[in-house]
Amino acid sequence: MSKPTLGSTRQGFIPPFILERIAAHDEVHLQGCAQRTLEVDHYFRARRAPDIVANMDMPEGSPRPGQAARYIYSANYQEVLPGTLVREEGQDESGDPTVDEAYRWLGVTYRFFWEAFERNSIDDQGLPLLGTVHYGQDYENAFWNGAQMVFGDGDGELFNRFTAALDVVGHELAHGVIEREAGLVYTYQSGALNESLADVFGSLTKQYHLGQTAAEADWLIGAELFTERVQGRALRSMAAPGTAYDDPILGKDPQPAHMDDFVETEEDNGGVHINSGIPNHAFYLAAMALDGYAWQTCGFVWYDTLHDSRLTQESDFATFASLTVDNASRRFGTESQEAIAIRDAWQAVGVIA
């Protein structure tokens, strides 16, 4: 299929409704961190990805498939991109944990996509992997802006540094893959699918790295992000959407697990970080029914569907679900356990009858 035009909306890991709750809290430091993060996020949402790419001096890609080309920059606690180059492919550790985590996890994510799906980087053509760390002062987010990944250090009170979590890095890199393939519009159901796919591939990257079966995985997204102060296990749970956190400051995890509880809202681009719990849970149910390594079963099917020409930029849950069932039948057989498990999972969350 032809590649879609890069979109205008950048994808942030922390939903705006969480940051808005923190900004309304009575602790001055937390208020300021959240308000500044929301301002930065608004600025990047307003910028067009093609303009960002056009204005960047992109380093060269990898000379051969299967070899990542990583470039880690530091913004030095300022709001500049990409910043100062501090580590590139093949160089020894820098001694800065944040720099070295970004380098390591980008390499792990690249290796996952290459070894599991034979995908050569974000664009399948060896695109360099650019990451900027130490972005801003106490910046409480991570995002993909159409050209690179950006990681904040967190506020140290609610959020740890965003490079600490492999699945967060995998999630943001996956947004680039999604953008280059289906280009799912980042609003309403297509946007929730965009977020869900990033969660799926972020979780699969962690499972692949740890050598975990579906039954062994925790199915949590961003488990390393919260400090001990937060009453929660992670930002999202694919196994039990709606249960990841319940905290006096952050509020309660709003994700539904079934279409009966689908949230109609204009906030959060139409609930992209909320309703993504439904397709997330469908993937979890299918993977658990099949057990084994999820990237070898459901992961293949979700990846097949991502670059299926029938998946349009505005596809909804039902369209995506029917395509996964069809792709499972094509890859494994119409009456295969994979096709049956995937069909049953989508029925269990109320997306298809």
Rank of each mutant, 00 (worst) to 15 (best):
G95Y: 00
P254D: 04
W144E: 10
R45P: 08
E60A: 13
E172G: 00
D124N: 15
E181V: 05
A215W: 10
Y73C: 06
T187I: 14
T109R: 08
R310Y: 08
T5K: 12
L127M: 13
W295V: 04
T324Q: 13
G95S: 00
H171Q: 09
L38T: 07
L30W: 01
Y293A: 13
D123A: 04
M1I: 04
L306Q: 05
G183Q: 01
W144F: 15
Q11P: 06
I72T: 03
A214S: 14
T84G: 09
F162I: 02
L225W: 08
L130W: 07
L38M: 08
Q207N: 14
F13A: 09
V185L: 10
H281E: 01
G333L: 11
T187K: 11
R331T: 13
T98W: 08
H209A: 15
H25K: 10
V349C: 00
F332R: 12
G299Q: 07
D96H: 01
V177L: 06
Q189H: 03
Q35H: 10
R45G: 07
P97D: 03
A223E: 14
S309W: 05
D57H: 13
A240Q: 15
G152W: 02
L323F: 02
L235V: 13
F13R: 07
T5V: 13
G66W: 07
G90E: 04
W295K: 02
G183K: 02
L197S: 05
P50D: 09
D326G: 10
A164I: 14
I22N: 00
F262M: 04
Q31E: 10
R233K: 14
L30F: 01
D261M: 03
G136R: 05
G232Q: 03
E89W: 03
A214H: 05
N55G: 15
E60W: 00
G131Y: 02
E93A: 13
Q337R: 15
A165V: 08
D92W: 05
L210S: 13
R180G: 02
D92G: 09
F44W: 15
E39W: 00
F300L: 14
V99D: 09
A353M: 11
H134N: 08
D41G: 12
G12P: 15
G156Y: 01
E181F: 09
L311C: 07
A240I: 05
D26I: 10
F332N: 12
L220D: 00
E39G: 05
D96W: 07
G107M: 07
T265S: 03
A345S: 12
P82C: 01
D316I: 11
Y43M: 12
G61R: 05
D268A: 10
S74Y: 00
T227R: 10
A23W: 05
S8P: 11
E157N: 12
L210E: 15
L158Q: 06
G66C: 08
V351P: 06
Q296K: 15
L306I: 09
F162R: 00
N55V: 01
N275F: 10
I52L: 11
T319H: 12
E179F: 00
